[in-house]
Design a protein around this nucleic acid. Structure first.
Length: 270
DNA sequence: AGTTTAACCTGGGTGC
DNA sequence: TGCACCCAGGTTAAAC
């Protein structure tokens, strides 16, 4: 589920229930996530007030006065708001109970997610070397052009690299490259400023639109299983290998780059 | 330093 | 039905 729009949707979904609420209890049922959940996490959170729920890249920061929980949803994680007595599901690894009685339930079948504690999250190793947020003004054509000079990595790898820009996962990399007409294998150092301008805009548009659509499932999100299904109809290439290109009708090609499915139009993307 | 590869996990789908 | 295999929205650490 979690590309950046899902993480932002999650943040918006849980923040109203969390902010200025006291944590009553943290239950870690399975600490074996990507890294072991630190034993101190519960003690650091219990009895403290959540001041804000923020997002940096695909990390959620649950901020307290003296530190933050750093949460990542990995490939298969979700965070749901529980207001009733709905039963535990398999892979419900962590639960945060608030003084209001509302609970946050973290479910993650593949356990690629993480829950860490940091007193200074903004300088934590996981966050310190990240590139700009895709929706920030400093992420733009000139930035991409400057950073890419001399680089021989394919453009798809380049924009999926967190050092370049955060939050561009496999789906949105495919979509943005199609919208810009850039072949995913084109070397990053061989792309013009003008094309980078359009690529940055396409990334912003694609992510913004997805966040807006994620927003439409927000109400559901509180009560439901938290699986937004917003993207299927709006995707131009992802999941459409072999089907006709929406621009020219030619069958879309599907290849693998860095172990990830890559879909593109051989005619429209150069 | 830049770039690629392997690894962390479970579950669902497919083909034999 | 069973089993082997491939695939999945992410990211890091190690290896070229």
């Amino acid at each position: 589920m979690p590309e950046l729009p899902e993480v932002e949707t999650t943040r918006r979904g849980i923040a109203p229930f969390c902010e200025q609420e006291t944590v009553r209890r943290v239950t870690v049922r399975n600490p074996a996530l990507r890294w072991p959940v630190p034993a101190e996490l519960a003690a650091r959170m219990e009895g403290r007030v959540i001041r804000a729920v923020e997002r940096r890249a695909k990390y959620l920061l649950i901020r307290f006065d003296d530190g933050s929980a750093i949460v990542h949803l990995g490939m298969s994680g979700s965070l749901r708001v529980i207001t009733d007595d709905s039963p535990l599901m398999t892979h419900d690894h962590i639960e945060v109970e608030l003084a209001s009685g509302t609970r946050l339930r973290f479910n993650d079948p593949r356990r690629f997610g993480c829950w860490l504690w940091s007193e200074d999250p903004d300088h934590h190793a996981l966050l310190a070397s990240l590139g700009p947020e895709p929706l920030a003004p400093e992420f733009n054509g000139p930035y991409l052009y400057r950073l890419s000079r001399g680089r021989k990595t394919p453009i798809k790898s380049f924009i999926m690299d967190n050092h370049t820009v955060v939050g561009v996962g496999n789906i949105y990399a495919n979509e943005a490259l199609f919208k810009t007409g850039i072949h995913p294998k084109r070397l990053a150092g061989r792309i013009s400023l003008d094309r980078y301008h359009r690529l940055a805009e396409a990334i912003k548009e694609t992510l913004s639109a997805a966040i807006l659509m994620g927003g439409t499932t927000l109400r559901d999100f509180v009560n439901s299983d938290g699986k937004p299904g917003y993207f299927a109809q709006s995707l131009l290439v992802y999941g459409r290998g072999g089907e006709p290109c929406r621009e020219c009708g030619e069958p879309l090609r599907e290849i693998r780059m860095n172990q990830r499915t890559t879909v593109y139009c051989g005619r429209c993307q150069r």
